[in-house]
């Protein structure tokens, strides 16, 4: 009995240490954003005289609202397109046997191996040629189909009972009908989880948006933040305020759908 207890204490100690390590930087970001100019350079763990000053400065320095809006448009669009293309592709892969299926599947899986840095130059040239630079569409288009999403959807479709699809065919349902009225309602939570992961990834994306947008007004929030970090002004309070703002949507989603998100990351792996 005693031994079991000591193991449990050790377990919790380890877990609490890990948790502190995981969330402390986030905590430090938030309290720094509320510290005033004199306090910011001290190591106090709770702001003595909390202030909104840093936030006001951050809003004055960058078009934060516009950038958040850009991020939102880009992330939403990207998520919808990735879900749409992967639902259609996943359906085709489980529903039919056709010539070249293995080849297509292999080609889809192999894109996993192509790092973005290996295709960024030709893509950058192409986006500029078709004039989609400085445009949310230019950010979204190269990511409109995601191998990660396709393979995840394919995995969950594969475990869907084929007899249900057969039954729907006998009922006279069309293929799109089977996909959206029979399969989707039954794997809704999986698709929602995948959608959340895709949204978070899209929100956090920064290399490609940085190449496509030069003007702050057209850029997602990550780009604004990056230039703020690199601007070398000693405005750490404001920087932390801007960083906090950029995290809020993600943290809100996480707060409400935490279990969903963790489960689906465990299921789908990482991108």
């Amino acid at each position: 009995m005693k031994r079991i207890k000591s193991i449990t204490v050790l377990q919790h100690f380890l877990l609490i240490m890990m948790s502190i390590i995981a969330i402390f930087p986030l905590y430090w970001m938030i309290i720094s954003s509320f510290k005033n100019e004199s306090e910011i350079f001290t190591s106090s763990f709770i702001p003595q005289a909390p202030t909104w000053q840093n936030y006001l400065y951050a809003f004055a320095e960058m078009p934060i609202i516009q950038m958040l809006f850009n991020s939102f448009v880009v992330a939403t669009l990207m998520t919808i397109l990735q879900l749409a293309t992967s639902l259609l592709a996943g359906y085709a892969l489980v529903r039919w046997n056709f010539k070249g299926k293995l080849l297509i599947f292999t080609l889809l899986s192999l894109t996993w191996l192509i790092p973005f840095q290996a295709v960024m130059i030709p893509n950058y040239v192409l986006i500029n040629q078709i004039g989609l630079n400085e445009n949310p569409l230019g950010i979204v288009l190269p990511f409109a189909a995601s191998t990660f999403a396709i393979l995840s959807i394919y995995q969950s479709f594969k475990s869907f009972p084929t007899a249900l699809i057969d039954a729907a065919r006998l009922d006279g349902e069309s293929d799109l009908g089977i996909l959206f009225r029979i399969i989707l309602p039954n794997i809704r939570s999986t698709v929602v989880s995948l959608g959340i992961i895709l949204f978070i990834n899209a929100w956090n994306e920064y290399l490609w948006p940085m190449l496509v947008t030069k003007e702050m007004e057209n850029a997602p929030i990550q780009i604004g933040l990056k230039s703020f970090v690199n601007s070398d002004v000693n405005m750490w309070g404001s920087l932390m305020a801007a960083t906090t703002i950029s995290c809020i949507p993600i943290l809100l989603i996480y707060l409400f759908l935490q279990k969903h998100i963790v489960d689906s990351f465990v299921r789908f792996g990482i991108k």
């Binding site: 948790s19 969330i23 930087p25 970001m29 350079f41 190591s43 956090n204 920064y206 933040l225 932390m240």
Partner: peptide, 30 residues
């Protein structure tokens, strides 16, 4: 615990970069 362990994974690289840069600031970092 899982909920807390997970937070670093969902934060943007820029966010993490900014926070660590501040934590390890040469003169005034924690």
């Amino acid at each position: 615990y899982r909920a807390m362990f997970f937070i670093p994974m969902i934060l943007a690289p820029v966010t993490v970069g900014a926070i660590w840069r501040w934590l390890f600031h040469p003169a005034n970092g924690l």
